[in-house]
Amino acid sequence: MEYRLVYQGGEGEITEKKSRFIATVLPVSNEDEAVAFVESMKKKYWDATHNCSAYVIGEHYEVQRCSDDGEPSGTAGKPMLDVLLGEDLHDTAVVVTRYFGGTLLGTGGLVRAYSAAVKEGLLSSTIITRKRGVKLNLETDYTGLGKIQYIFGERNIAILDTEYTDRVALEALVPEELLDKIKEEVTEATAGRANITEGGPCFYAEINGKTRVLE
């Protein structure tokens, strides 16, 4: 399945009636990492009025946690969590640090402020859609190269590496759902003269306009 997540965390800030709300976003792969991140933010902003948090982990959101950290129940952590779920984000943690500005915001005001702070933090983060792919290794003669490049161009298949000798060796990244179709099209276009081997499954994403394999 496609999987939206934060590739690179960011920080955003809003001010509401002189209260500062600083959102820090971080990608996390398990609950231990999320807990450690929350604790690190509490240490960093030790003098803040509140450090509220939320995180979601797992392909099916198996872990969902949030904390109001002293704010009225349901006014901080839950709205923050709702933003992460609403954005369909996985493996993501956020801490919103509040410095009280002297004016009470009320229940609705707090919900809006914490939600807005998370959205601001996400705006400064790099969010990607992780997809399943397969690395495909192809070896062809120069006649077949143009045909393969045409197929890949039509299908928007990324070529990761090319090596030119008396023949041409290509490593391509093929979306999992297109694998059989691509193999069939290349075989047909080259009259079976291209050698095709699968290099194994991987995850990939479009990052800043480029296809990248994710570690």
Rank of each mutant, 00 (worst) to 15 (best):
S124Y: 12
I159V: 15
F37G: 00
R193W: 07
Y45M: 07
G200F: 10
T103E: 06
P72R: 09
Y164R: 08
E59L: 14
Y114C: 01
Y99I: 04
E139D: 12
Y45I: 07
G9I: 02
L214M: 15
R130W: 08
N195P: 00
R155P: 01
R112Q: 11
M80N: 03
E62W: 12
V95T: 05
Y7M: 01
I14F: 03
K183Q: 15
P201T: 13
E154A: 13
G153C: 12
I151H: 08
H60V: 06
L179M: 12
L145Y: 15
V94K: 03
T165Y: 05
N208P: 04
I182Q: 02
G101N: 03
T92E: 00
Q64N: 11
V83M: 03
N195A: 12
T103Y: 05
Y204E: 11
E185M: 13
R167C: 10
I207L: 08
A34P: 00
F152E: 07
I22L: 11
G74H: 05
H50P: 04
C52H: 05
G74M: 07
R98E: 04
T15D: 00
I182P: 00
S53F: 12
G9L: 03
E206I: 14
Y114Q: 00
L85A: 04
C66E: 11
I128M: 12
I182L: 11
R132T: 13
V95G: 01
K42I: 03
T126C: 08
A48N: 09
Y3K: 07
H90K: 12
L145Q: 15
I127K: 09
A189M: 10
S19C: 02
P27T: 00
E59P: 00
A117K: 01
G153K: 09
D82K: 10
A194H: 13
V83E: 02
V186T: 06
T211C: 09
G209T: 00
I207A: 09
T126K: 15
L170P: 04
K210I: 03
L122E: 06
A117F: 05
D180M: 14
E71K: 08
R20D: 00
Y150C: 02
A76G: 03
Y114M: 01
L26T: 06
D161C: 04
G86W: 02
T190V: 13
V95L: 02
L5A: 04
T97A: 04
L136E: 04
H50A: 10
R65K: 15
E11N: 01
K78T: 07
L173C: 14
E13M: 07
K135Q: 15
V6L: 03
E39L: 06
V186L: 08
A117R: 02
E188V: 11
T187V: 09
Y55A: 01
F37A: 02
T126H: 03
N30E: 07
G86Q: 05
K181C: 04
L26N: 08
E171G: 10
S124D: 13
K135L: 15
T143Y: 14
E62V: 14
F203P: 00
M80C: 07
Q149E: 15
